[in-house]
């Protein structure tokens, strides 16, 4: 069985099968990353999935230029993904200026999606709004740790931090999320 570095090496050389297996391996991670970062838009993940597709295409295009020069492959992949997500954020805020609303717009897109889909996207939105309470760094860490499933060491490489710093930051992020929960309940009880 090939290890990821072997697969990456062969893919960089343009071996078709290796490129295909590499993408098959990366794609679910990239989709989860984009969905986690962008959240459901207009009631679904169409936008996030489109961005994930763009990320895959961009990775394919950049792959021949990837040389293992101490830059870990995950940093290469999620660096591209982070830039594409940032582009999408900018495009979205240009097209739809953020307005002050006291809850998330519920209006679905033109296609009447099945009820289950609405429920599903609804659920993801809760976490997305909770993540909005974290610092950018904490949010990146939670997305890479939970949504993508990278170990703390890999997350450190992607974000340019030590694994120890990632562990402290992730504990702070979880602490923050738990604090928000308890303050909400206090608020409700008062």
């Amino acid at each position: 069985m090939l290890t990821e570095p072997d697969l990456v090496a062969k893919a960089v050389q343009g071996k078709r099968e290796a490129v295909e297996s590499l993408l098959a391996h990366l794609r679910p991670q990239i989709v989860r990353y984009c969905r986690a970062r962008l959240g459901p838009i207009s009631g679904g993940y169409t936008t996030a999935d489109d961005v994930a597709q763009e990320v895959c295409v961009a990775i394919l295009g950049a792959l021949p230029r990837f040389r293992d020069q101490g830059v870990p492959f995950s940093a290469f992949v999620f660096g591209i993904a982070a830039r594409k997500v940032a582009d999408a954020h900018r495009a979205a805020t240009r097209g739809f200026p953020l307005s002050i609303v006291d809850n998330v717009p519920e209006r679905a897109d033109a296609r009447p999606g099945p009820e289950q889909l609405a429920v599903a996207s609804d659920l993801a939105r809760h976490l997305h709004s909770l993540l909005g309470e974290l610092t950018e760094n904490q949010r990146d860490i939670i997305v890479l740790r939970v949504a993508v499933g990278l170990p703390a060491e890999e997350v450190g490489k992607v974000l340019g931090m030590s694994a120890a710093a990632v562990r402290v930051a992730q504990s702070r992020a979880l602490h923050r999320l738990r604090t928000i929960a308890s303050s909400l309940v206090d608020e409700m009880a008062s």
Binding site: V31, V119, A120, H126, L127, V146, R178
Partner: peptide
Amino acid sequence: PLALALSLWREELSPTAVPKRAKAKRR
């Protein structure tokens, strides 16, 4: 509860997640 919420979220993000009625009900 936070762990439970995060695991549901993780599941929700999965591209292979098929929104089935039964699943939606369970959620």
